[in-house]
């Protein structure tokens, strides 16, 4: 009995790690490959989650929806809508240094949060959206969890292989060239702004897909489901610690950070209630400190970016 509980917990953790790994991969396209600072990851994640939820959930009076379309359509919708939100932001901000993008993405995440909280006809505001279908949901609990884990792993694997292919292609070399020496890349005739916009939208789309995977796993979503700042920050530290620019690093970072984060949560939950709340915020402090330590002592991460092989010596 104990063993089954443990196995169930491991499967549950595996699914969440997969979702975070997708988010870290999305951020890796933006930051690792292109040097774009996205401080509103949670916003794109939420757009994906809500888009897929609205497309696939049953009808509720007073709210847009009731389309009950297949889940695959919901995922497609999540990818498209997250990308669509990224487009205007990128269009305005990518002409400048990434500082401006950081501020604008903080802003867009804030606006998305406001919309989710107040637009009852679209998102059900504080009641949220429930009754979202889940793939393999009709199986019994353990089998269904296992099947979903398989699905998440498959999604991570597909995104990983597509990204690796892109990285090794001339496109990947061009993106690195733009990141490392913008002026030289521009002189070679590369369209800097358009390429950056491409990367920003691709990254946002992957984050949207992660949102969709999360919402179908959870079967429901409310505005409180995601703490924007903490979610965004955890993904940043996953990528930086794992190794920005390296897709395997992004996945490794997601595993390490999520394990540490949940284990520490289990410990603080056992503390008496009067210190438990403080312990929760101390945990967040430690995450912030961890980022500073990684930036200082191991800026390239556990798995540094692989340098392109030199063709001639």
């Amino acid at each position: 009995m104990e063993l089954i509980g443990l196995a169930n917990y491991a499967i549950f953790m595996g699914i969440l790690i997969g979702i975070y790994a997708l988010l870290a991969l999305g951020l890796n396209i933006q930051w690792g490959l292109t040097g774009l600072f996205n401080a509103g990851i949670a916003g794109f994640f939420a757009v994906g989650a809500y888009a897929s939820a609205i497309i696939t959930s049953p009808h509720v009076a007073g709210r847009v929806g009731g389309f009950e379309l297949p889940i695959v359509v919901g995922w497609m919708g999540a990818i498209v809508f997250a990308g669509l939100i990224a487009w205007p932001i990128g269009k305005v901000c990518l002409r400048f240094r990434s500082d401006y993008l950081a501020i604008a993405t903080i802003g867009v995440a804030e606006i998305i949060r406001l919309v989710i909280k107040s637009e009852d006809w679209l998102t059900g505001s504080s009641r949220g959206i429930t009754g979202i279908p889940r793939p393999f949901g009709e199986l019994d609990y353990v089998a269904s969890q296992l099947a979903y884990l398989g699905l998440v792993i498959a999604a991570v694997a597909v995104v990983y292989f597509l990204l690796e292919r892109q990285l090794k292609s001339p496109w990947g070399r061009m993106m690195r060239a733009i990141r490392d020496n913008e002026a030289a890349a521009a002189a070679m005739g590369k369209q800097i702004e358009a390429r950056r916009l491409q990367a920003f939208i691709f990254g946002a789309a992957v984050m949207g897909l992660a949102g969709a995977l999360f919402v179908h796993f959870n079967r429901s979503i409310t505005p409180e489901a995601i703490d924007p700042m903490i979610a965004t920050f955890l993904i940043w530290i996953m990528l930086i610690l794992g190794g920005s620019g390296n897709n395997r690093g992004a996945i490794l970072g997601a595993i390490v950070i999520w394990l540490l984060w949940s284990v520490s949560e289990m410990i603080t939950d056992r503390l008496p209630t009067d210190v438990a709340l403080q312990a929760k915020y101390i945990r967040i402090f430690v995450v912030g400190l961890a980022l500073q330590l990684v930036l200082r002592f191991r800026p390239e991460g556990i798995l540094p970016e692989e340098q392109a092989r030199q063709t001639a010596r």
Binding site: G35, F37, A39, R97, S98, D99, A102, M229, F233, W236, I240, Q278, Y281, I282, I284, F285, V287, G288, L289, L291, Q292, L295, R296, P299
Partner: peptide
Amino acid sequence: YLRDRPKILTVMASLGVALMLRSVVQV
């Protein structure tokens, strides 16, 4: 210590500092 590295890393460090300051206030 980030002075000679790309400035965007300092921006990132400041986001971390924001989180740290806020958790100190909350504690």
